[in-house]
Computed example of a mutant assay.
Amino acid sequence: MAKDKYDTAILNGLPVREDASGKAVVEEGAKVHPWRIGKHTKGKLGKPGQIFLTEQNQKVVLVSVEKLAFKDRHDYTPMGRFTKETMDLNDKI
Protein backbone atom coordinates (compact mmCIF):
# COMPACT_ATOMS: atom_id res chain seq x y z
CA MET A 1 0.00 0.00 0.00
CA ALA A 2 1.34 3.46 -0.86
CA LYS A 3 2.41 5.57 2.10
CA ASP A 4 -0.37 8.11 1.45
CA LYS A 5 -3.05 5.38 1.51
CA TYR A 6 -4.66 3.78 4.55
CA ASP A 7 -7.09 0.93 5.19
CA THR A 8 -10.70 1.82 4.52
CA ALA A 9 -13.98 0.12 5.41
CA ILE A 10 -17.64 1.04 5.68
CA LEU A 11 -18.89 0.82 9.26
CA ASN A 12 -22.65 0.39 9.50
CA GLY A 13 -23.88 1.44 12.91
CA LEU A 14 -26.74 2.61 15.11
CA PRO A 15 -26.49 5.71 17.32
CA VAL A 16 -26.57 4.89 21.03
CA ARG A 17 -27.07 6.86 24.22
CA GLU A 18 -26.48 6.08 27.87
CA ASP A 19 -29.47 5.17 30.03
CA ALA A 20 -29.86 6.30 33.66
CA SER A 21 -27.49 3.55 34.83
CA GLY A 22 -24.81 4.50 32.29
CA LYS A 23 -25.45 1.50 30.05
CA ALA A 24 -25.38 2.02 26.27
CA VAL A 25 -28.78 1.62 24.58
CA VAL A 26 -29.78 2.12 20.95
CA GLU A 27 -31.62 5.41 20.44
CA GLU A 28 -35.34 4.88 19.82
CA GLY A 29 -36.17 5.07 16.13
CA ALA A 30 -32.49 4.93 15.16
CA LYS A 31 -31.66 3.76 11.65
CA VAL A 32 -28.45 2.13 10.48
CA HIS A 33 -26.08 4.72 9.03
CA PRO A 34 -22.72 4.20 7.26
CA TRP A 35 -19.47 5.81 8.40
CA ARG A 36 -15.95 5.00 7.28
CA ILE A 37 -12.52 4.57 8.77
CA GLY A 38 -10.61 7.80 8.17
CA LYS A 39 -6.95 8.73 7.88
CA HIS A 40 -6.85 9.98 11.47
CA THR A 41 -9.10 7.31 13.02
CA LYS A 42 -7.76 6.18 16.39
CA GLY A 43 -8.11 2.72 17.93
CA LYS A 44 -8.64 -0.72 16.44
CA LEU A 45 -11.61 -2.14 14.57
CA GLY A 46 -13.19 -4.98 16.51
CA LYS A 47 -16.38 -6.89 15.80
CA PRO A 48 -20.11 -6.04 15.74
CA GLY A 49 -21.18 -4.71 19.11
CA GLN A 50 -18.10 -2.49 19.43
CA ILE A 51 -18.85 1.16 20.14
CA PHE A 52 -17.10 3.89 18.19
CA LEU A 53 -17.29 7.67 18.28
CA THR A 54 -18.14 9.91 15.35
CA GLU A 55 -16.12 13.07 14.73
CA GLN A 56 -18.82 14.88 16.79
CA ASN A 57 -18.35 12.41 19.70
CA GLN A 58 -21.69 10.65 19.11
CA LYS A 59 -21.53 7.04 20.31
CA VAL A 60 -22.43 4.46 17.65
CA VAL A 61 -22.61 0.67 17.95
CA LEU A 62 -21.05 -1.24 15.06
CA VAL A 63 -23.57 -3.49 13.33
CA SER A 64 -21.57 -4.64 10.28
CA VAL A 65 -18.45 -3.91 8.25
CA GLU A 66 -18.19 -3.76 4.46
CA LYS A 67 -15.25 -3.42 2.12
CA LEU A 68 -14.62 0.05 0.75
CA ALA A 69 -12.35 0.89 -2.16
CA PHE A 70 -9.88 3.63 -1.26
CA LYS A 71 -11.00 5.68 -4.26
CA ASP A 72 -14.62 5.66 -2.97
CA ARG A 73 -13.83 6.80 0.59
CA HIS A 74 -15.12 10.35 0.12
CA ASP A 75 -18.66 9.02 -0.43
CA TYR A 76 -18.88 8.33 3.34
CA THR A 77 -18.51 10.37 6.54
CA PRO A 78 -15.36 9.48 8.48
CA MET A 79 -15.73 8.35 12.08
CA GLY A 80 -13.53 9.56 14.92
CA ARG A 81 -12.22 6.70 17.04
CA PHE A 82 -12.87 3.18 18.17
CA THR A 83 -13.44 2.47 21.85
CA LYS A 84 -12.97 -0.73 23.84
CA GLU A 85 -16.60 -0.43 24.95
CA THR A 86 -19.03 -3.04 23.59
CA MET A 87 -22.69 -3.93 23.88
CA ASP A 88 -24.69 -7.07 23.12
CA LEU A 89 -26.56 -6.48 19.87
CA ASN A 90 -29.06 -9.25 20.63
CA ASP A 91 -30.42 -7.28 23.57
CA LYS A 92 -30.58 -3.91 21.84
CA ILE A 93 -31.89 -4.29 18.32
Rank of each mutant, 00 (worst) to 15 (best):
M1E: 05
D7F: 11
T8C: 15
T8I: 00
I10S: 11
L11K: 00
L11R: 00
N12E: 03
P15N: 13
V16W: 12
R17F: 09
E18Q: 11
A20E: 14
S21N: 10
S21A: 14
S21F: 05
K23W: 01
A24Q: 11
A24T: 03
V25C: 03
V26S: 06
E27I: 12
G29S: 12
G29D: 15
K31S: 14
K31W: 04
V32K: 09
V32W: 02
V32D: 08
H33A: 05
H33G: 03
P34Y: 07
P34N: 09
W35F: 15
W35G: 06
W35M: 13
R36A: 13
I37K: 07
G38H: 08
G38A: 09
G38T: 09
K39C: 01
K39T: 04
H40M: 12
H40R: 10
T41C: 07
K44I: 06
K44N: 11
L45M: 14
L45E: 11
G46S: 06
G46N: 02
K47F: 15
P48Q: 02
Q50W: 07
I51W: 12
F52M: 15
T54A: 02
T54G: 05
E55Q: 13
Q56Y: 03
Q56W: 01
N57M: 14
Q58N: 06
K59G: 04
L62F: 01
S64L: 03
V65K: 15
V65G: 01
L68C: 00
L68Y: 05
L68G: 02
A69P: 03
A69E: 15
F70P: 10
H74D: 14
T77S: 15
T77F: 12
T77A: 11
P78Q: 05
M79C: 06
G80I: 14
R81Y: 12
F82H: 01
T83V: 00
T83Y: 01
T86D: 06
T86I: 11
L89Y: 09
N90T: 14
N90F: 09
N90Q: 09
K92T: 01
K92P: 02
I93D: 03
I93Y: 04
